[in-house]
Simulated assay, not measured.
Amino acid sequence: MASVCFYFQVHQPPRLKRYSIFDSGDQYFDDARNREILRKVAHRSYMPTLKLLGELIHKHDGQFRVSFSLTGCVIDQLRRFAPEVLEEFKKLAETGCVEFLAETYHHSLSFLYSKQEFLEQVELHLELIDEIFGQRPTIFRNTELIYNNELASFIADTHLFRGIIAEGTEKILNGRSPNHIFDPPDEIDIALLLKNYRLSDDIAYRFSNQSWPQWPLTAEKFAGWINKMNDVEGRMCNLFMDIETFGEHQWENSGIFDFMRKLPSAVIALGDDFKTPGECLDWYDSSDIFDSEEIISWADSERDITAWNGNAMQGSALAEIYGLEKAVKKTGDPSIIEDWRKLTCSDHFYYMCTKYFDDGAVHKYFSPYDSPYDGYINFMNVLDNLKTRLPSDEK
């Protein structure tokens, strides 16, 4: 029997207003634009997807199970602009068939730049998920699946989590299957669940591509691929993707909802099942070591962190924002601290990426700016204003 482990990332960044050097005031975030985008995505993706998942859970008497990681950023926006979506998440939580994961509250790169801020954001996120859904997450996923051995050691030392989700990148696996539980090296006491990026991307990216040799992808065909890997390539198939895969990245007319509607029946008919990440750790033992000294992520073809710190603009912006941490926190001003934390959201640096070709097209799709340079200038203008709110001896 093979177990399908579905995990959906849910995130919306706090997009900035267009802010010039001549602007003043501390209203940095474009509430109108953020509301517009959230409402659009809620209509196309969030609501139909969540309702479908709820129907599948009930149809299959709890045999269908999924997991989510909602950033604090998206929860804050849902509370303000689309509370009905948050209610759907709560309904799913009440089924007992959904597991919520932990991450940094503000979807930040803080682990790379400030371990103290990283830990504070993780604790804030844990409290938020417990408050809203009544769950205390035991599985951690770092922003954009950024991971290395150091992260595993740090997370293990907190004693907060049983496992970490990471990218099953081939440069670390070296020909091994990602469909197992792995351990970090040096007896670090935490388990790793690795994304099967090939099968995940078949749904998330290739589903509607009519030039793809496997198009059209049916539920029966996909379930067959999962079943064939059983025992040969492992006992789990970790399918990790953005929830916007359904209805936003793959439009409704592509057949993506019909595919998802039929998939559980097709999987169960072949004798396979569905488990959440925590349940996978309950059922399966680790089989090998995943030794990643280098930093990996689930972004771009390189599966590294150059999407956020690969050029001088990004490096400068990151150094500036984290360089203000001590002065910001010393103020004790909740509004300044919250604005600063929103500016640590990884999306702001993603918009500054200057990659080209296939990866560059993806970056352009998600960016609200005409160019990476516009993104950098706008961010730095906001940051300059934030500095004016700090005591002069702390800047």
Rank of each mutant, 00 (worst) to 15 (best):
K115F: 09
S177E: 04
E127M: 04
E120C: 09
I155P: 09
P184L: 05
V122L: 09
D202S: 12
N209W: 12
F154G: 01
E170W: 03
A166L: 06
R235C: 12
N148W: 00
N230H: 15
A156T: 06
T138D: 14
I164Y: 00
E123S: 13
W225I: 11
N179T: 07
I164N: 01
I203Y: 02
A191W: 00
T169H: 01
L128H: 00
R162L: 13
S177L: 07
I129F: 07
S114N: 09
N148S: 02
F111S: 00
L126M: 06
E123K: 14
E220A: 14
F182H: 08
G163S: 05
Y113L: 06
E127D: 11
L145Y: 04
I188H: 03
N174G: 00
E120H: 12
Y105W: 05
L160G: 04
I164C: 02
E117V: 14
W212L: 06
I188R: 03
A102I: 13
L199W: 10
A102K: 06
I188Q: 05
L151D: 10
R136W: 04
L124G: 10
V122T: 15
F133P: 06
D183T: 13
S208T: 08
L151T: 06
F222V: 11
Y113E: 01
T218C: 03
G163P: 11
M229A: 15
P178I: 11
L199Q: 12
L124Q: 13
N179C: 13
L112E: 07
H125L: 09
E123A: 12
L194N: 02
F140W: 12
R176Q: 13
E103K: 03
P184G: 03
K115A: 11
E187S: 15
L151C: 05
D186Y: 08
L173N: 01
N230M: 09
F182L: 07
T158Q: 15
P213D: 14
S108T: 03
M236V: 12
P184T: 04
M229Y: 08
I155R: 07
S200L: 05
H107S: 01
E167N: 12
A152L: 10
D242L: 00
E127K: 11
E120Q: 14
R136F: 01
L124D: 14
S110F: 01
F207K: 08
K228A: 14
L126N: 06
P216N: 07
N196K: 03
G134I: 06
N196L: 02
S110C: 05
F161C: 04
R176T: 04
F111V: 00
L128G: 02
N227H: 15
A219L: 04
E103H: 10
T138Q: 15
S177A: 02
